[in-house]
Each structure stands twice: as structure tokens, then as C-alpha cells.
Write a protein that binds this DNA or RNA. Structure first.
Lengths: 211, 211
DNA sequence: TAGATTGTTAATCGATTAACAATC
DNA sequence: TAGATTGTTAATCGATTAACAATC
């Protein structure tokens, strides 16, 4: 793999999509694909595909194209999908529980190790064999377990406090579903899923389709 | 409001965020704010804020800044939040149910009118007083009810078929949570929430923090 | 009026696309 | 070898930032 300079955020955001299409191709037993063919499938220009991939090294071969399996493996590795991630979920309402189930069934490599909530009616419950613990136990849990990713599914009022605890507890990344922009240290990766923002931009696009 | 030419996607994606910060300011009884002060809060440059807002018209006043309440109202209107949206959810697993609850409690204006699933164990269930209907009843339901937004929470294998039915049933927008890129006609707005892609780009960022 | 801050034009920056030489 | 297709450089396009005249 080429020495990675600074790869732009836009490129990174496209990698999972490349990987999905390569996975489909693998399932269809397609061995090789050219940037042009991939362009037709995925909707990016062939030029962009080649540019994107060459950020990480020359995975193709002139006159041949790309080996589907090899490229899939390379992208997986670039994304860091060749290792496991220990995760905890803070906030075990419907969304927290949905994510626990989702990752449990569909996301090998992303392992929910613990769940936390402040609501006594949820504490003690078991979701996919993970017991929901009391929120007050979070600090100690993080001290005793090396967690990679903290998932925040609380309301917006509590989210920053939770983020602070997670950062203190040395998580490497935060997956935030609360409708606030969190402050976290430079050393922690932050990925936001602002469902509300997403729905609002859909509303905009519904009302401006004829433009 | 100025005649809107073609507003870039990036601008639209920032509008909900502006709105959130303005809402916070309203709660704090702040009447006015300059692009510079807003820049400090929200993290966009003052220049970008002024450019963004001027896509839609001159909401500010020289020497004064922007009226918080008025700007909030304007952005709400631009996004189309001054009207209601009738929604249905297809796929009532954990995520579908979570979204039903989420929109029910937090998203006035986005009203879940119906829910559909293929699983007999879910059909008949009631979620926030919405009965889960059998998937086979979807076509007829769409014929008899004018639905604005279809939310797809099925597995990826079924998503395109559901999308086709929704488009046939004349929805205006689709909020897609399945891990596929859907084909929908030009006339239908499509907003994807690819949770899996999001998690993968978080993984990348975790592994490349020191770059 | 003087000061502040917008609206808007111009400059810069970065990302996408086009082109083509290198090479399998 | 001839044909195909990459890797990579150059050109274009679009988005962000800077600057400042207009004006409240």
C-alpha cells in the first residue's frame, strides 16, 4: 500500500460504497472489473474511481482492470475491517436497542460489549445476551475494559456529558446519534448520524424537485 | 425570498445545522447574532454563513446582523418545515420501530400514518397506536392514502422492490435505511442513511487519527 | 455621523474530470 | 505484437474564503 498522505474526507466516504459493490460482484463470481464497468454500476466516473484508488496504491493492472477479490480485500484493510472493534452503547431506548441488534446480526467485527442506561426499567434487561448496566457504572466499566467505540443514543441534553466520559475512558471513536455537535478531543474520531438533519434535507428535496 | 437558482447539495445539508443552533439561541433568548458570532458557535466561517444565507435572500441587516427568530423561521420555511408530511414505514424490525417512536415523540410535522411488515408475528402489533399492517396491503394503502414519505427499513434484498411500490404509490420522497443504492425516478427525492457505511468510515478514522 | 456588519464580487483552494503516456 | 486499461498529469469545475463597497 502506498504511503497515505492526507486522504480527503470525500474519498473515505466513498470507500464503503466501493466495497459494497465489490462484494456484490464477488457474490456473482465476477473476477475482474475495469474502472469503466465499475463506473456504470456505481455511478462515479471511471476517472474518479481510478483517482480514488490510487490514493492508496496501484491496485489495478494496465490492460486488465482490477481483480475484484483483491480490491475488496484492500479496501477492507484500508477501512480497518481486518480487526475487531469493541463497542458500548449508551442510551438503550428504541434506537440503542435497534443498533445493538443490527450490529449483532449484520456487523461482524463490531462487537457490542456493554450497554448502559439511566432508566431503572431498562437496567438489568438483556439484549442479545448483553445486560443493560446502570449509567453510574460507566466510568468504572471503561476503566476496566478497553473499548474502541462508544455509541451515543441518548437525548441531546445528555450527549456531551456522555461523550466526555467516553473520552475520559479512552475510547478511540464515538458514533453519535444525538442531535448535537459534540466537542471531543483531537485524538478521538467522531462520526455523526443526525437523523433529524437527514429527514429535514429530504423535506427540502421533496419541495424542490422541479428546480 | 430570492428566486432560488440551483442551490448546491452542500448548502442544503448545512441548513438543518443552522436551524439547530438558531433554536438553541432562541431558547437562550438571544435576539440577534452576527455571522461572526454564529461562526464561533457553529464552526463554519462567517463568510460561508453569509454566502449560504444569501442563496435564499438577504435575511440580515448591515450593521446589525441577523434576527435569530426571523432567520430560524426563514430556514424552517426553506426546508419545508412549515407543512406536514405523511409517512409510512416499511419493515418494522427494531430500526423501523425505533424510527416510529423517534418521529412520534420528537418530530412534529412528520407523521407516521402506517407501518408494514411481512412477518406475521409483527403484523397486528400496535406501535404508538399505529397498527402494523401486512406487506401485501401496501399497494392498496398507497392507492387510498396520499403519502409523502416512505421509510424503508427492510433488509437490502427487499429494498428495491419496496422502493418500486412506493414510487408506484406516488410518494414524494424515500428515506432509505437499507444498505443498497436504490433506483427511483427523477421525480422522487431520495435520502439515504447508510449506517453501515457510516460505521466503516468511523473505523477508518479511528485507525488514521495520527495522520 | 461613526461603527458595525451585511451582501457580493474576486481570489483561492480543493475536488472532479479529461487526456494520454506507460505498460500489462 | 496489438488492444485494453491503468496510473498520473493537466484542465476544469465548483465550493470556500477573503476583501471591501454598500448601507443600516
Amino acid at each position: 500500500m502506498k504511503e497515505t498522505g492526507k486522504i480527503s474526507k470525500a474519498v473515505i466516504k466513498r470507500l464503503p460504497r466501493y466495497r459494497r459493490y465489490l462484494e456484490d460482484l464477488m457474490k456473482k463470481d465476477v473476477d475482474r472489473i475495469s474502472s469503466n464497468e465499475l463506473s456504470n454500476l456505481i455511478g462515479y466516473t471511471a476517472s474518479q474511481i481510478r483517482q480514488d484508488l490510487n490514493n492508496f496504491g496501484g491496485f489495478g493492472q494496465q490492460g486488465y482492470g482490477y481483480n475484484v477479490k483483491a480490491l475488496h480485500a484492500e479496501i477492507s484493510k484500508i477501512l480497518g475491517l481486518d480487526r475487531d472493534y469493541k463497542m458500548i452503547i449508551v442510551g438503550c431506548g428504541n434506537l440503542g436497542q435497534a443498533l445493538a441488534n443490527y450490529t449483532h446480526y449484520y456487523k461482524a467485527g463490531f462487537i457490542v460489549c456493554g450497554m448502559f442506561d439511566i432508566n431503572p426499567r431498562l437496567v438489568g434487561l438483556s439484549i442479545n445476551d448483553i445486560e443493560v448496566m446502570d449509567y453510574s457504572a460507566l466510568d468504572e466499566y471503561l476503566e476496566q475494559n478497553q473499548i474502541d467505540i462508544g455509541i451515543i443514543c441518548t437525548n441531546k441534553g445528555s450527549a456531551q456529558e456522555v461523550a466526555d466520559k467516553l473520552v475520559m475512558g479512552k475510547v478511540k471513536g464515538i458514533w453519535n446519534f444525538a442531535a448535537v455537535d459534540l466537542e471531543v478531543g483531537e485524538e478521538v474520531a467522531l462520526e455523526n448520524v443526525h437523523l433529524s438533519d437527514s429527514l429535514q434535507s429530504l423535506a427540502y428535496n421533496i419541495n424542490h424537485k422541479e428546480d
